[in-house]
C-alpha cells in the first residue's frame, strides 16, 4: 500500500484495539444501558434501589404500610411474594425481569419497577 505509511496502520490498529477493549469492558462490567435497577417506591418516596444483576442468593424483606408486602429478590428478578392487600394485583403480577416491568400495589401506595424504558411500547392500556 503506497498511499499509507506504516504509522497509519499502527494508528488504525491502536484505535481499533481501543474500540474493542471499550466494547469488551461494557460487556464485562455493564453500563447504564443494560443494568437492571429495581426501584421500590412508597407514597412517592424511593425506599430502596437494588441492582438485580448483582444480587446473590435470595433475599426477602417487608414493606410496611397499611397492607404490608413481602418482597423477594433473586439474581435478575424481583417480585411481591405476599401482600396483605385485598386485591393481590401486585402478587399476581409475578416476577419482574425486564426493564420497564412494574408491580403496583394501589392499597399500599407502592410501586416496584425496573428502571428503564420498555422498548416495544411507550405506554399500555389495560
Amino acid at each position: 500500500m503506497s498511499i499509507l505509511k506504516k504509522g497509519d496502520l499502527l494508528l488504525a490498529a491502536a484505535i481499533a484495539l481501543i474500540a474493542l477493549a471499550v466494547s469488551w469492558s461494557f460487556k464485562v462490567f455493564g453500563n447504564g444501558d443494560t443494568a437492571r435497577i429495581a426501584v421500590i417506591k412508597q407514597k412517592g418516596r424511593v425506599i430502596r434501589r437494588i441492582d438485580l444483576d448483582r444480587v446473590t442468593g435470595s433475599e426477602t424483606f417487608e414493606l410496611k404500610g397499611d397492607y404490608p408486602q413481602l418482597i423477594q429478590v433473586e439474581k435478575g428478578r424481583i417480585r411481591v411474594a405476599e401482600a396483605g392487600c385485598p386485591d393481590q394485583v401486585c402478587v399476581e403480577t409475578g416476577w419482574l425481569t425486564k426493564r420497564g416491568d412494574a408491580a403496583v400495589c394501589v392499597p399500599n401506595g407502592t410501586i416496584i419497577e425496573i428502571e428503564g424504558e420498555k422498548s416495544e411500547v411507550d405506554d399500555a392500556t389495560y
Binding site: 403480577t93 420497564g100 420498555k118 411500547v121 411507550d122 405506554d123 399500555a124 392500556t125 389495560y126
Partner: peptide
C-alpha cells in the same frame, strides 16, 4: 406516534395482544 400496548387479556401483565 405514541405506541400503546393493548394488554393481552389472558397473558401476564405487560404482555400485549397488539400495539
Amino acid at each position: 406516534p405514541w405506541r400503546i400496548g393493548i394488554q393481552d387479556p389472558r397473558g401476564e401483565k405487560g404482555s400485549y395482544v397488539g400495539v
